[in-house]
Nucleic acid binder design. Structure first.
Length: 692
DNA sequence: AGCACGCCGACT
DNA sequence: GTCGGCGTGCTC
């Protein structure tokens, strides 16, 4: 029986209970655990080596009858995820089920199941939309081969239409088949849902994401589990949906970091999707205009020195459909501009001109708030968070200083808290300031049709309220906004028809980051942002001027920007992969992080060092193929008063790394109890970490 | 992880 | 004298 026991505690995996009748594996039950009663999933018939004598076993409290058992494919997925990401089976299994199942008793469950299901729509009646040549050839490949497929299609190439058609093909071919379609962010589910519902009807489509209420989630989950919903749309959590007829998985924007869970079991929904598809004989399509280097490498075509090629099938769709040509990239050398200029003169002129012509502009700055730090000119005081090794961000709107790591907020002081000087000033800029600054610069400019230029800001702050993002986006779509200022949020996926200019005002930060994936992420973000421009070819043609992507940089000749200028993902990827191979980094090596959080940095690092010693002394299997790096503090060393350290574990062999981690786990557990590591708050393993 | 049991400071 | 602080230990 799998129950929610914590990650590899002494209880390890499964617990045994007595039952009067034999129960099929996958059956959901309620069982006593300590003083409470919890949800459990029957995993297997009585184990050969029960830890507790059968006579002393406690009895199952109830069976959630009427609910079909979770099938072997689902259980295999959960078991794999638990093993691979070094967590307990129970934790992963229970986290994969809708939370409300935990609170429902058998009677309530039965009542819930008696509710009539919504009627489905006849798939045969779904219209066939004509595909372009490129789309059709991708579809044909997917139809005739096994995959996994990497659909490499530039922004606006119509990847979604290929997904829709492949789903349609599947649903027509098999009466009980189901498809799972994932997107990286909750924000992107409404528009996806709209398209799928328009095509297949509301009765066939359900969503699964963390923005839903518990009852909504249970309803969707049950519809998927019963097979009544043929299509499940969702974020990373949806990869665990119970889908007995699963025949196709789509992972849209597969490069997106949001597919990696960052707490609990730190799984990659994209990687699990590939595993799940193979295990249950489904097809899987990973789609992106800027694939992760992992997927790109895995889909390399066979070559002379590499007759096998990668294990993925690469499908290319280079042309944009119904959209204008990709924007011309204009780089501004900020070294040639006045010192403190936020908007260079040529960029400001270009924005002004576009707005006067009735076109929309998008300005990207990856930093919310007014300024990242407040600074005293006299004594050099900075608005440091008292609980974290980070600055408190100045938010002018509500005159607050807020730490983006722990949430600690206070009112902005009138004078320097350290020396009393009134000369305290914001340093650096965020989206709030950009919005204000731009309003000043565009004052007196009148937009097409007359009136002042309308500027809107979209970031996590402006969209906090329910429905705020949707209504802000609607304003942009309705043409009530001339310039849109925002963070990454606006670069992803949204179909702005009248945007003809996109600008990244300060993207350099990522160029010299210590994170080896930073250039990859920057390139993907800029490509994606560029893809927001000129999405309506007919409208752009009327305008007569081609769309543009502006980049302001102190290093305009940097290879990232050179590749961006040519819209040449392949060249960028090739260059990055060469570097990665030479440096022995992913995808040519496999990594895991062990993280320790403690009262002091010494304790955190001490625990990690002891863990490394224990591994060496125990001569764990595969240790000769493993590199253990010294413990180091995290980039943000202290968060909410807790010191954080990590240790990188690396191997050229994934199986070796897996064996090593599995054997190491019990040693780490034993160490925790050692009084030498008093003050340790928690430790965890992150397999295939995205940031190191 | 929960939730108990268990032994020390400020309140009715 | 109790209410409650969170340290240690257990859950088939």
């Amino acid at each position: 029986m799998a129950v929610h026991t914590p990650a590899h505690s002494a209880l390890g995996g499964l617990l045994s209970y007595a039952s009067l009748q034999p129960l099929a594996p996958g059956t959901l039950v309620r069982v006593p655990l300590g003083t409470r009663e919890v949800l459990g999933v029957v995993w297997e018939a009585p184990a050969s080596e029960p830890g507790v004598p059968p006579a002393q076993l406690r009895a199952i409290a109830g069976v959630l009858a009427g609910l079909p058992p979770l099938n072997a494919h689902w259980r295999a997925l959960v078991a794999f995820a638990a093993r691979y990401y070094q967590r307990s089976l129970g934790e992963v299994a229970l986290a994969a089920l809708p939370a409300q199942l935990r609170t429902l008793g058998p009677e309530q469950m039965a009542r819930r199941l008696r509710r009539p299901a919504a009627a489905g729509t006849d798939t045969d009646a779904t219209p066939l939309i004509a595909l372009s040549t490129e789309q059709e050839s991708a579809r044909a490949e997917i139809d005739s081969k096994n995959g996994p497929f990497l659909l490499f299609g530039s922004t606006g190439s119509g990847k979604t239409e290929v997904y829709l058609r492949c789903v349609q093909d599947l649903l027509l071919a098999a009466p009980a088949a189901q498809a799972l379609v994932m997107v990286p962010e909750i924000n992107l589910t409404p528009q996806l849902e709209e398209r799928f519902v328009a095509r297949f009807g509301a009765g066939q489509v359900v969503s699964l994401h963390s923005g839903m209420t518990n009852p909504q989630r249970l309803k969707s989950w049950l519809a998927a589990h019963s097979g009544q919903a043929r299509i499940v749309l969702g974020t990373r959590m949806a990869v665990f949906a119970s889908m007995p007829g699963l025949g196709l998985i789509v992972v849209d924007e597969e490069h997106d970091a949001s597919y990696k869970q960052q707490e609990g079991a730190r799984y990659s929904a994209r990687d699990l999707a590939v595993w799940r598809a193979r295990a249950c004989g489904a097809k899987v399509i990973l789609g992106s205009a800027t694939p992760s280097l992992e997927s790109w490498h895995a889909s390399r075509p066979p070559s002379e020195g590499d007759p096998e090629g990668g294990r993925y099938q690469r499908l290319e769709m280079p042309s944009r459909i119904g959209a204008a040509a990709l924007p011309r990239v204009r780089r501004v050398d900020m070294g040639q501009q006045p010192r403190r200029a936020v908007f260079s003169a040529p960029l400001l002129a270009a924005i002004t001109e576009r707005v006067q012509r009735g076109e929309q502009c998008m300005v990207l700055l990856n930093r919310r708030g007014y300024a990242p730090v407040l600074h005293c000119q006299d004594c050099d005081w900075k608005s440091d968070c008292p609980h974290c090794s980070a600055h408190q961000v100045f938010h002018k709107i509500d005159r607050s200083l807020r730490c983006h790591h722990c949430g600690y907020a206070q009112r902005v002081p009138r004078a320097c808290p350290a020396c009393g000087s009134p000369d305290i000033a914001p340093m650096g800029r965020g989206t709030e300031q950009l919005e204000e600054h731009l309003a000043g610069l565009l004052e007196g400019v009148s937009r097409q049709g007359g009136g002042p230029v309308r500027i809107a800001r979209i970031d996590a702050d402006s969209t906090r309220a329910a429905g705020a993002l949707q209504s802000q986006l609607a304003q942009v779509h309705a043409g009530e906004v001339d310039v849109l200022v925002g963070t990454q949020m606006i670069a992803k996926g949204h179909d702005f028809r009248r945007v003809s200019l996109v600008a990244a005002v300060q993207p350099d930060g990522a160029l010299f980051s210590s994170d080896f994936r930073a250039p990859e992420r920057l390139f993907a973000l800029l490509m994606q942002a560029a893809g927001r421009a000129g999405r309506d070819a007919a409208w752009m043609a009327e305008r007569g001027t081609p769309c543009e992507m502006w980049v302001q940089s102190h290093h305009p000749k940097h290879p990232v920007y050179e590749a961006l200028r040519r819209h040449d993902y392949a060249a960028f990827a090739a260059q990055q992969l060469t570097e990665r191979e030479q440096a022995g980094m992913p995808p040519f090596a496999f990594q895991a992080l062990v993280r320790a959080d403690a009262r002091t940095q010494e304790v955190a690092q001490g625990f990690l060092a002891a863990a490394a010693n224990a591994a060496r002394e125990a001569a764990l299997p595969g240790v000769e193929h493993i590199s253990l790096y010294p413990p180091i503090p995290l980039a943000v060393q202290r968060v909410a008063g807790v010191e954080r350290a990590q240790m990188l574990v690396e191997s050229a062999s994934r199986p070796a790394l897996q064996h090593f981690l599995a054997a190491w786990q019990p040693l780490l557990h034993a160490l925790r109890a050692d009084p030498a590591h008093k003050g340790l708050v928690r430790w965890l393993v992150d397999v295939d970490p995205l940031a190191i």
